[in-house]
Design a protein around this nucleic acid. Structure first.
Length: 505
RNA sequence: GCUGGAUUCGUCUAGUGGCCCAGGACGUCAGGUUUUCAUCCUGAAGAUCGGGGGUUCGACUCCCCCAUCCAGUACCA
């Protein structure tokens, strides 16, 4: 049995899409479950699409998520280099080998000529295809004489190397998720394997690398399914054993249909990228899960369940658990829509079970962002009082600001509902009562206030909520006497007086 | 257009011929807890299993046709 080796092979053309993260996650889970290796290979054969910073972004994203590679770019390993641009010299000989064995041929047609052919065909409602039926009419080593080919090659004329499909051959791809997928070679285009700029295309580089890196399973997005027959044929042409294939369903946009794209995220209010990304050219910023206040564990859990399930009703799973439970045959065949509400729920769950110290670090960062300095124990106490209310890290502030800073505004709706004529008088009286509890004890204070409220036949809801408005600025937050205990009696007095001044000028 | 893939509650999904007049989760709604908000608890609504034909004693599950959606169709990956 061959050792399990899988790879994640993005191209550095921009930030890593969340769908790509899921693909990587599934690869990781599969590798770890089978005691295999997981590698990162950068596929940068298209020099025109290279985006600076993209590679670093990819590495940082996986660091944040806690998904570790065993080999690859940034780590190294026995099968390096792991960046295709650095492997450039080795591809040519494989392309030549295919020419020698008759599986490929030189083509000298210019992009313009081919473009014209395509347009022409389109005008007749047909599709132009570079294949067995058209090869002879085009400019290549199959249609030209040997001497002519030789002469063109020697003169340095630009050329590409194309794969030569055998005519009318049924090619079957065995897919771990979809079963057998068969297509006839007559329907396939003689794909370019080697470009005129001296770089291989994805197809060649991918097969050569997967083979030389001893990849056992290719787990990738469904968008690759149509080119899988080519890959199968390439393995055959080289006489190599093909890896197992698994084509993952796509991640769809939450509304309507179609692949989740960069634009959808900011349009619908959720990140499409793990980390925030600033486009180096346009300066445009796309939000990231990390910056939006997601915990990596939540992102992983949510992503894992988009297209896979453990077969039980368990939903909360950390990385280690996922490694244990994952299985390719439980991956679904159809695309999954991203669900913001479910993501939110997951994040809330993970905030509740997060390690206190880790959460504290997040909380302290949020406070620093709002220029608040506070003593550690106090911050910790506040955090535990409010954390069950927060779904995303930045919400720590809106749920806790009044523990650090007195409110300057009072929610008009709450005021309208709870602040009645006479409220101010009662609040003053209550302040006196609270002040009389020496030393302050929240239970004693609570009981005394209750006596006052009942003794004066007041509306509990109204009076207590007006008190809350004065302290918090809104109708929210933990138990009132907890808040008083936290901020102190003096501060309580100040806030009540200020509220009366502002609300009843 | 052509080729391939997919199709179960709004969403993610369970379901591999009888246990399914379809189960769970998120969301929604209602009630409870909380003096408020959030949380939490309980309950409810919600899918004629895309449509139509078969096969079978019996189909969400097998076969065929149709429809719809998605992907691919580059010297991009």
């Amino acid at each position: 049995m061959k050792k399990v080796r899988v790879r994640f092979a993005p191209s550095p053309t921009g930030p890593l899409h969340i769908g790509g993260v899921r693909t990587a996650l599934y690869n990781y889970l599969f590798a770890k479950q089978n005691g295999g290796d997981f590698l990162l290979r950068i596929e940068d054969t298209d020099q025109t699409r290279f985006v600076p910073g993209a590679e670093e972004y990819i590495i940082e994203a996986f660091q944040w998520l806690g998904i570790q590679f065993d080999e690859g770019v940034g780590i190294g390993g026995p099968f390096g280099p792991y960046k295709q641009s650095e492997r450039k010299p080795m591809y040519k000989k494989y392309a030549d080998q295919l020419i020698e064995t008759g599986w490929a041929y030189y083509a000298f047609d210019t992009p313009e000529e081919l473009d014209a052919r395509r347009k022409e065909a389109e005008a007749q409602k047909k599709t132009f295809q570079y294949d067995a039926t058209t090869r002879d009419g085009l400019c290549n080593s199959l249609s030209l004489s040997k001497e002519e080919v030789e002469q063109r090659l020697q003169s340095g004329a630009p050329y590409v190397i194309r794969f030569k499909y055998p005519a009318n051959l049924d090619i079957t791809v065995h897919d771990l998720i979809r079963g057998e997928v068969t297509i006839n070679s007559n329907l396939l285009d003689d794909k370019v394997l080697y470009k005129s700029d001296g770089m291989p295309t994805y197809h060649l580089a991918n097969i050569v690398d997967d083979h030389t890196m001893e990849i056992s399973h290719v787990i990738r997005g469904e968008e690759w399914l149509p080119s899988a027959p080519l890959h199968v044929m390439l393995y055959k042409a080289f006489g190599w054993e093909a890896p197992n294939f698994a084509h993952l369903p796509l991640l769809l946009k939450p509304d309507g249909n179609g692949k989740l794209s960069k634009r959808d995220g900011d349009r619908l209010g959720f990140p499409v990228f793990p980390l925030q990304w600033k486009d180096p050219k346009s300066g445009e910023i796309s939000s990231g899960y990390r910056e939006s206040g997601y915990l990596p564990e939540a992102v992983i859990n949510m992503l894992a369940l988009l297209g896979w399930n453990p077969g039980t009703e368990q939903e909360m799973m950390d990385l280690d658990t996922l490694v244990k439970l994952f299985s390719i045959d439980k991956i679904s065949k159809s695309g999954a829509k991203f669900d913001l509400e479910k993501a939110k729920w997951f994040n809330h769950q993970y905030i509740q079970i997060a390690d206190d110290n880790l959460l504290l670090q997040h909380f302290e960062k949020v406070l620093a962002l709002h220029n608040v300095k506070a003593e550690g124990e106090y911050v910790k106490m506040v955090m535990n009082m409010i954390k069950e209310r927060v779904h995303f890290i930045p919400e720590f502030w809106e749920q806790s600001s009044y523990f650090f800073v007195a409110p300057t505004e009072y929610d008009p709706q709450a005021v309208k509902k709870r602040w009645k004529p006479g409220t101010a008088g009662h609040l003053c009286k209550m302040i006196e009562i609270i002040d009389s509890v020496q030393p302050f004890d929240k239970q004693v204070a609570h009981d005394k206030i209750m006596d006052y409220v009942q003794g004066n036949e007041l509306n509990m809801g109204a009076i207590m909520n007006s008190f809350r408005i004065a302290l918090v600025g809104a109708a929210k937050g933990p138990e009132l006497f907890e808040i008083i205990a936290a901020i102190g009696v003096d501060e309580t007095k100040n806030r009540v007086q200020k509220a009366i001044q502002v609300i009843e000028p």
